[in-house]
């Protein structure tokens, strides 16, 4: 059984198709990343999987339960950190977590233990009795992550979990997510704009653009797509001749060869050079970054957005004027 299984899952808002028929299978215990620019449909996909939004078509199963016919069972088995703030800012951190534990049916002793654990994890223990109105945006984010982990869900959804966090906290959270995944086998679905985050955490990454998945593979394989071999030699013209079967390109006194299988190509170049007795002065595999892959696949770069204290102001503004963001 897969942790998540979708079949032709679709969501349309009027004329706009936010998610085109989507088939994904996330294995149990996997960390699965959804990477995509603003408006790609990441949040919409997650909203359907966590039963907050009805699909316009297709089906989805989470932990073996159908999101449409068994929403209660789905909810029981998942945790989520929403992209937007979702706390009660008139209550304290402790009260927010306690309320969460009670809604998930955790008994008092367990609640107390877990609240202490997760508060310690995100470093908010000293501020646990402060009303959240007095928290910074990053502190609220940390609390929300703590809350999502608190009830030990089987599948944890993280919608841009580290947006707006300082690098140190971000590392800290990454390590914890990894540990949680390794030690307790929690399946994690993560959306992010941060390449290093996807690279560091994810077993597999789906690159999403305009509601469609344009690539799905391990970070390693994704980065191997179209790696470039850089080769140089004292006898560059002869070498260029010898490698002609591999579509070489000359550039700045080097020969560049694009390849989707860098290891094989590397061996091939070496053996050709040896046969022809051509001494190589340089041979190097340049793998593209995820960012490069992303740009190549979607045609635009991913924006590293920073959330800040102004988010709270935006939420307030939205509330007062009724404007959707």
């Amino acid at each position: 059984m897969h942790a998540i299984e979708t079949h032709q899952l679709t969501k349309a808002f009027g004329a706009l198709t936010a998610v085109h028929p989507l088939d994904i299978h996330v294995k149990k215990g996997e960390v699965f990343g959804l990477l995509g620019p603003n408006g790609a449909g990441k949040t919409t996909t997650i909203s359907m999987l966590v039963t907050l939004l009805s699909p316009s078509g297709g089906t989805a199963k989470v932990n073996g339960f159908d999101v449409q016919t068994q929403p209660d069972l789905v909810r029981q088995s998942i945790g989520i950190v929403f992209q937007d703030e979702s706390i009660d800012d008139e209550l304290t951190a402790w009260e927010n977590l306690d309320m969460h534990g009670r809604l998930y049916g955790m008994p008092w002793e367990l609640r107390k233990k877990r609240i202490e654990e997760v508060l310690k994890l995100v470093g908010l223990q000293p501020r646990q009795d402060d009303v959240l109105k007095t928290y910074s945006g990053g502190m609220i984010r940390r609390l929300e992550i703590a809350r999502g982990l608190m009830h030990h869900p089987n599948v944890l959804f993280l919608d841009e979990p580290t947006l707006g966090l300082d690098p140190q906290t971000r590392r800290h959270i990454w390590t914890y997510i990894r540990k949680l995944n390794r030690d307790e086998g929690v399946t994690v679905i993560l959306t992010t704009h941060y390449m290093e985050e996807a690279d560091f955490l994810c077993d597999r990454i789906a690159i999403m653009d305009q509601g469609k998945i344009v690539a799905l593979d391990t970070p390693k394989k994704l980065k191997e797509r179209d790696a470039t071999l850089h080769v140089a030699s004292g006898k560059i013209d002869e070498l260029y001749q010898a490698l002609s079967a591999m579509n070489p390109v000359r550039q700045n006194g080097k020969i560049l060869i694009e390849t989707s299988q860098p290891q094989r190509s590397l061996k091939r170049v070496l053996s050709i050079a040896e046969k022809r007795k051509l001494a190589l002065t340089e041979i190097d595999v340049k793998k593209p970054t995820l960012e490069d892959i992303f740009v190549e696949l979607t045609g635009h770069s991913i924006r590293d957005e920073k959330a800040g204290t102004s988010d709270r102001f935006k939420a307030y503004n939205r509330a007062m004027t009724g404007r959707r963001k």
């Binding site: 907050l52 909810r75 929403f82 703030e85 979702s86 809604l103 998930y104 509330a319």
Partner: peptide, 19 residues
């Protein structure tokens, strides 16, 4: 409840295993 919706807290309740 509209405030809860605007400030996102409603989602926390709606996604919990609470009828």
């Amino acid at each position: 409840v509209v405030y809860d919706r605007q400030f996102g807290f409603l989602k926390e309740i709606l996604v919990a295993p609470v009828s």
